[in-house]
Design a protein around this nucleic acid. Structure first.
Lengths: 206, 206
DNA sequence: TGAAAAATAGGGGAATACCCCTAGACGGTC
DNA sequence: GACCGTCTAGGGGTATTCCCCTATTTTTCA
């Protein structure tokens, strides 16, 4: 029995392209839609899987996923979009999606992700999987070297402790803690501790 | 030609278990090691793939990945461990790993991840893939709702701007910016802006 | 063993964050 | 119409950060 698929994308060209691709590969395209509302109207309990764009004229893919999962928890969802931001992908998964494919990727990528998802696994387009998993551009990120003490203090700063509290905890003078903090601000080119924490997250130091 | 694999784990029982599993499935186990240093000594250019534990007597899997990728960039790496923390997994990928498998998972999971990795894709044990992708226990984490203005100010705070600078940028009084900031501190139960940024990252609000 | 890096600690001062309080304006909702 | 949440903005005070400066001790590593 072939997989019953729904397609949601506001560009008719994309819808037709995906439809023909899927049907060529033995899938059954049950319905298509150009906007969120008609997609929810088209949605039937016998739908196995929905491919959905993220940007829609009357909402976004995250809302759609949430709503679909509420009505029909068994329906599988795959995000299908151009890539803008890792947080989009993460939010799709938070709202129930099991897969994510870039529009720019080829047929074999889409088919592979569908196969994975149908078998109960999560799958992300290889082009962005590393970015999504690691949460940032991993490449030249690791040039910054913090000392052991600096890392220790950085962690406590991230937990919201003041210099005084950190000093008490580590049996250090407030001035020592401030010195380490200042050094980290210089090393990471941060303008204050909030900025420092952000940079530390981006560079995976936390 | 069968895949040439190395195994690094400090428990001999695990090493032998994995070895027999792999050999039963047509792979060739080229070498095994119980610690980081001897693994690096054993490492040869004709190794295709290494399975590595995270906790090691003389270091950790992250260091190992980094070092392996530096010497032999073509060698594929798969983390193999019990699960403690999503940041371990993310850091393994940051340092060059392409896959991650839980020790508690069965044979078929390990074989599937190996297959994916060999074909050039990243793969994570399905048991933790959602957790790793979304960056947290997705369930009730998403109750926090920041308003548009708050998100806007949060982003600028993360970029290291002071309340005064944000006020200038958004044509707001310093007092207004401070009010929004205070509300976010209350909403996210943060003790200062540094803590706020950390929580925002954990909850994927940034 | 000698130099470099890291960790320690201080003084002093301007800027900012953080906390308490109040309060009007505006949009949506029951 | 009354309520709620958001956005706006103020007064005033304490705590903390952030910046300049110096300086000793400890650790690391070539």
């Amino acid at each position: 029995m072939s997989l019953k698929i729904g397609i949601l994308d506001d560009h008719p060209v994309v819808v037709e392209g995906v439809r023909s691709l899927l049907e060529r590969n033995g899938f059954q395209v049950l319905w298509t839609a150009q906007d969120l509302r008609s997609a929810l109207n088209n949605l039937r309990a016998d739908t196995d899987l929905v491919l959905t764009d993220i940007q829609l004229p009357d909402g976004d893919g995250m809302q759609f996923c949430k709503e679909v999962k509420k009505r029909f928890p068994h329906v599988l969802l795959i995000g299908f979009s151009s890539f803008h931001d890792g947080s989009f992908v993460r939010n799709m998964f938070r709202n129930g999606a099991s897969g994510y494919v870039l529009k720019e990727s080829g047929e074999e990528v889409l088919l592979h992700v569908i196969t994975e998802v149908v078998q109960g696994r999560n799958a992300i387009d290889p082009k962005i999987s590393e970015y999504v998993i690691t949460g940032g551009p991993g490449a030249e990120t690791n040039r910054i070297v913090l000392t052991r003490r600096e890392k220790e203090i950085l962690q406590l700063l991230a937990d919201g402790l003041s210099s005084k509290e950190i000093g008490d905890k580590l049996f250090l003078s407030v001035k020592t803690v401030e010195a380490h903090r200042t050094n980290m601000l210089l090393k990471l080119d941060a303008s204050n501790v909030a900025h420092l924490i952000k940079i530390a997250y981006e560079k995976a130091l936390i």
